[in-house]
Write a protein that binds this DNA or RNA. Structure first.
Ligand SMILES: Nc1ccn([C@H]2C[C@H](O)[C@@H](COP(=O)(O)OP(=O)(O)OP(=O)(O)O)O2)c(=O)n1
Ligand SMILES: [Mg+2]
Length: 778
DNA sequence: ATCCTCCCCTAC
DNA sequence: TAAGGTAGGGGAGGAT
């Protein structure tokens, strides 16, 4: 066999990388973080253990308690009050990125940009405390493994969670940095470039057995062997690891996240269980996850890629599309660029990359399959037909287990056979869109343009592992934790949701209590229900209130719950002054008549400093301050619609819109009350009040008040507090509130209904018309 | 037609 | 033990 230059080269690269790592280690020892001792507060990314490992490796100290030794507190997200409390003993409170970036930079970076209370700090997330760990973590109460919440613990070990998180991050990174990235090549005119043929040059990059490749950087002895990344452990080719359970590994249901190509020769595949894998290859070696390393490699991959083209479409942490149409004159030239791109990435990350390229996204992707491992392949226009003919349909993106099965029933297993099926037939079986896509893909046709940024449509949190409840209250408590996690993510991404949905996995009747996978979900039915809001939110209190209400509606048997998730849908932006795409300034009429769940208009304002000053010093102050940072309510500041107050009361919410779900959740006597007030109302004449001036109303920061600032559970206090707010609000207007302003109040009441805040004061007279009237007779 | 809700499927 | 998340495309079937 001829000398394999590629292999030799990669061997050298790895060797170099290894040397470099060792050098870094030597340099790092006692260097970067000498004199630095950190204390990690709460849940961070990376987690406390990882940070400890990093800091110690680079000469710093780690403390389990906030002692005087501590020079820096590390936290990802903290309420302002807590930051102040933590920083009193002159230690700085910094984001973990300070540590990561310092390591990357090879020197101690100034903390300035990473201090949580500084203006430039990247995010201010609220920490999610679990019910069991919500005690203040003070100096005498260091965080331990034990008081980490289930949610945090789970996520820190979940590969799929990391995969999703990184994908989101990289999408954000790309859309933010792509426009201002310094590029290696300058664009050609469309007369010179590939475009002169009316053709695109699309490259698809994908790291080879990503997790394994990263793991093997530090385990050169395992190169060329069947290796898999998994949580299950026995040997590792490393001496000190205990050979725990030779036999039990055969039954392990732990997933293989990634396996080497040598392992694939045995039939092992990503996603397989360890038990299956070891049966296929008893000599398979398992190595552990190293999430932070994967993260760093992904980051480097994307930093590198965006210097090659202004057209980059992120796919995942190890996969990306790049369009070169404007940078090359021929496919040969593109091939050379791809070669250098691949070696640059391998040089920087120590991981091998394969690349496929062709004239559209589909074919570039298919070409990558042929290129792997550690190669590149150009699928030319002439080759397409022949190549596709033998390509199994399951290789087409979007065709998975189910559709492959479905096609197989039709006698179709490769693209050549798929071509024989008529378009109408495909549409009949798979629906209009899917049918058409199949028709095109079978022919190598793909007219999609590469998209560099896509607007997020939803944000969600879910756990379908380890869910075992006896009481419904336990499930509710978990929903509360998930709500906090969701709030935290919504804050980070700057979104508000107008729709909240709850998703449950419920054990199937015939499925056994004990799942095959330890604490897995087993065979389940999925059920979901959503609730529209009139005012978008990112508040965990709002979210959990709605989620729990939805849970009650779905009324599952607590012991059958195997998974739960919450999603925010119909998103709008919470960033001040940032216009929402497609958003219109809402006039009163629009607001009054809009269905719940509609996107919020561009015009927004925060509760702002007035709310803060109004209640500063009161017990609820810190809550409202936090809320102020989170939620910015939409306003009715602009527009000239004139709807009478009376008609507003009559029109909103239309009976058809009054959320059935909320209604049904009420005791039946309350339901009747509500129906009653609706039916009475229809008989009434519509009364129009004084015409209202069309000038913009006084900016009103008092309404609506923060729900979480009101006394839930105590009807009398609730009412009184709300009255206080109304009085303060009215007092703002020398000549009394304009009609339009009262609509804000109406909106507020509606939102109370949305959020089930009114479920708490279970007093019939608060409901229906009398409820509204009561507020106005102050 | 088009929209909405509740799914199912797919990909990493 | 094991860490089965998450976003998006799209279909079925009903309401408008
Ligand atoms: N079921 C899966 C599939 C993938 N991954 C993770 C581990 C993989 O390393 C990474 C990238 O997925 P790929 O599909 O790109 O697979 P690999 O990179 O491992 O192999 P290759 O791309 O060479 O086929 O995502 C996972 O955890 N579980
Ligand atoms: Mg890969």
């Amino acid at each position: 066999m001829a000398f394999d230059w590629e292999d030799h080269k990669s061997y050298m690269t790895v060797k170099r990388q290894k040397l470099q790592d060792q050098l870094e280690d030597v340099e790092g020892d006692g260097k970067i973080f000498s004199g630095v001792t950190i204390y990690v507060n709460g849940y961070t990314k990376p987690d406390a253990d990882t940070l400890k490992e990093i800091i110690c490796k680079h000469g710093g100290g780690y403390s389990y308690a906030l002692t005087s030794r501590v020079s820096h507190v590390i936290a990802t997200n903290l309420p302002t009050a807590k930051i102040k409390a933590l920083s009193i003993n002159s230690s700085k409170v910094c984001h973990p990125d300070w540590i990561l970036d310092s390591v990357n930079a090879g020197s101690l970076l100034p903390t300035e940009k990473y201090e949580l209370y500084s203006v430039s700090s990247k995010s201010q997330r609220k920490i999610s405390f679990s019910p069991t760990a919500k005690k203040e973590a003070g100096p005498e109460d260091p965080p331990t493994k034990k008081d980490r919440s289930f949610v945090d613990e789970f996520y820190s070990h979940s590969r799929l969670h990391h995969l999703s998180t990184w994908a989101s991050e990289l999408k954000e990174f790309t859309s933010k940095n792509l426009p201002r990235a310094k590029r290696k090549f300058s664009m050609l005119s469309s007369g010179e470039s590939l475009r002169r043929f009316g053709v695109k040059g699309v490259v698809h990059l994908d790291l080879d057995s990503f997790f394994v490749s990263v793991g093997l950087r530090d385990r050169p002895g395992l190169h060329g062997q069947p290796v898999a990344v998994t949580h299950a452990r026995n040997k590792e080719g490393e001496a000190d690891t205990t050979e725990v359970v030779g036999v039990s590994l055969h039954q392990s249901m732990s997933d293989v996240a990634s396996c080497s190509y040598e392992a694939r020769d045995f039939g092992i595949r990503n996603g397989m269980s360890v038990g299956e894998a070891i049966n296929l290859c008893p000599s398979l070696t398992f190595i552990p996850y190293e999430f932070e390393k994967y993260h760093a490699v992904s980051q480097t991959l994307y930093e590198t890629v965006i210097t090659y083209s202004h057209l980059v479409e992120p796919v995942s942490c190890d996969e990306v599309f790049i369009e070169f149409s404007d940078y090359v004159t021929s496919w040969e030239e593109l091939g050379d660029i791809v070669k250098s791109l691949r070696s640059e990435i391998e040089e920087k990350t120590g991981c091998k990359v394969s690349a496929g390229f062709s004239h559209n996204l589909l074919l570039a992707r298919l070409a990558t399959r042929k290129a792997k491992p550690n190669g590149q392949f150009h699928l030319s226009e002439e080759e397409v037909e022949g190549y596709l003919k033998e390509t199994p349909v399951a290789s087409l993106p979007g065709i998975g287990r189910k559709m492959k099965e479905e096609l197989s029933k039709m006698g179709v297993s490769n693209c050549g056979e798929l071509r024989e099926v008529s378009l109408p037939k495909l549409r009949e079986v798979f629906g209009p869109k899917t049918g058409y896509t199949l028709y095109c893909f079978a022919r190598g046709i793909d007219n999609r343009d590469l998209t560099t940024k896509k607007e997020r449509k939803s944000i969600s949190v879910e756990i379908n592992y380890g869910m075992r409840f006896e009481q419904i209250s336990e499930a509710e408590s978990l929903l509360t934790q998930l709500s906090e996690e969701l709030q935290s993510r919504a804050l980070d991404t700057g979104v508000l949701g107008s729709s909240i949905s709850l998703k449950l996995k419920i054990r199937q009747k015939t499925a056994p209590q004990e799942t095959k996978k330890y604490l897995g979900h087993g065979r389940c039915d999925n059920i979901s229900r959503s609730q529209q809001l009139h005012i978008p939110t990112n508040d965990s209190g709002d979210i959990s209130r709605v989620a729990i209400s939805l849970l009650k509606q779905l009324s599952p048997n607590p012991s059958d719950i195997r998974g739960m998730g919450i999603a925010l849908n119909k998103l709008s932006s919470s960033v001040k002054g940032s216009p929402v795409k497609g958003g219109k300034m809402a006039d009163i009429r629009t607001l009054m008549t809009s269905s719940p769940g509609k996107r919020s208009p561009a015009s927004k304002r925060s509760l702002g400093s007035v709310l803060k000053s109004e209640r500063g010093g009161e017990e609820g102050a810190s809550v409202s301050v936090m809320r102020e940072e989170r939620v910015e309510y939409q306003n009715t500041a602009a527009g000239d619609g004139c709807t009478s107050f009376e008609s507003a009361m009559l029109d909103l919410p239309p009976a058809s819109q009054l959320d059935q779900s909320v209604l049904l959740a009420l005791p039946s006597d309350l339901q009747e009350e509500v129906f009653d007030s609706y039916s009475k109302r229809q008989d009434k004449e519509r009364v129009t009040l004084e015409p209202v001036s069309t000038e913009p109303s006084l900016a009103n920061p008092l309404f609506p008040p923060s729900l979480s600032s009101l006394s839930n559970g105590n009807p009398e206090r609730f009412l009184n507090e709300t009255r206080t707010h109304i009085k303060a609000w009215v007092a703002l207007y020398p000549a009394g509130p304009k009609e339009r302003d009262s609509t804000i109040f109406i909106q507020f009441l509606i939102s109370l209904i949305d959020l089930n805040a009114l479920e708490i004061p279970r007093i019939p007279q608060y409901w229906g018309g009398s409820f509204f009237v009561k507020f106005f007779i102050l």
